[in-house]
C-alpha cells in the first residue's frame, strides 16, 4: 500500500468515526451496508474495465499518445483532448479506464485533465440522455455556453500547476511497450 492510499483510508476511517460519534450506530451501519453493496456492484464492472484500459493502451499509437496528446503538446493537445472528451460516451466506468489507458501510453496529465473536464461538462450523451429531458433546452444551452471554455482553461491551469506535482513526472503506470515478458512490467 502506498502513502497516498493510506491517506485515503485515514480519511475514510476518520469520517466514519465522526459519523459514528455524531449520529450513532444506525447511520454508520447503513454506510457500511452501502459500501458493501457498491463494492459487489463495482467489482465485476472494474474487473472488466481494467483489461479494457490496458488493452486500449496497447492499441493507442505511440505518436498519438506521446505526440498529439503528450506532455509537450501544449494548447493543441488540450484542444484535441477537449474534443475527444466531448465525444466520449458512457459513464465513469468507460471514461476513467480510457484515460488510464491514455496516461499509460504516454499522454500528458494536463491534456487528460482537459479530457475529463470536457467529458464531465460538455459530454454530449449525458446532455441528451439526462439534462435535456429534465431541465429543458434553454437551460442546457445556457449551461453549455457558460461551460464551453472551461475544459480548455482546466487544461491550461493544470499545465501551470504541474510544477507542484513532481510525482506526475513519471507516467502513471510504467509498463514497457517494447518486448517485455509478461510479469516483468514495473508498477510505479
Amino acid at each position: 500500500m502506498t502513502t497516498t492510499q493510506a491517506l485515503v483510508w485515514l480519511m475514510a476511517v476518520g469520517a466514519f468515526a465522526l459519523l459514528l460519534r455524531r449520529d450513532g450506530i444506525v447511520p454508520a451501519r447503513r454506510a457500511l451496508r452501502e459500501t458493501g453493496g457498491a463494492m459487489l456492484r463495482l467489482l465485476p464492472v472494474i474487473g472488466v474495465a481494467l483489461p479494457m484500459a490496458t488493452l486500449f493502451a496497447e492499441l493507442v499509437p505511440p505518436d498519438v499518445a506521446e505526440g498529439a496528446l503528450g506532455r509537450g503538446s501544449g494548447l493543441v493537445g488540450i484542444l484535441l483532448a477537449t474534443t475527444a472528451g466531448m465525444l466520449l460516451p458512457g459513464g465513469p466506468f468507460v471514461a476513467f479506464p480510457l484515460v488510464l489507458g491514455f496516461l499509460a501510453a504516454g499522454a500528458g496529465p494536463a491534456q487528460m485533465v482537459a479530457l475529463i473536464s470536457a467529458w464531465s461538462v460538455l459530454g454530449l450523451h449525458r446532455v441528451l440522455v439526462w439534462e435535456m429531458p429534465v431541465m429543458g433546452r434553454r437551460f442546457v444551452l445556457l449551461r453549455l455556453a457558460s461551460g464551453a471554455a472551461l475544459p480548455v482553461l482546466a487544461g491550461l491551469l493544470a499545465e501551470a500547476l504541474m510544477l507542484g506535482f513532481p510525482a506526475l513526472e513519471q507516467p502513471a503506470f510504467e509498463w514497457s511497450r517494447s518486448a517485455v515478458l509478461p510479469g516483468e512490467h514495473v508498477l510505479r
Binding site: 485515503v8 463494492m39 508498477l187
Partner: peptide
C-alpha cells in the same frame, strides 16, 4: 493496486452521504 483504495473510496463516499 486499485482494490485496496477502492474500498476506502467507497467507504468514504457512503459515509459522506450519511453525514
Amino acid at each position: 493496486f486499485i482494490f485496496p483504495v477502492l474500498g476506502a473510496g467507497l467507504l468514504l463516499a457512503a459515509t459522506m452521504r450519511q453525514l
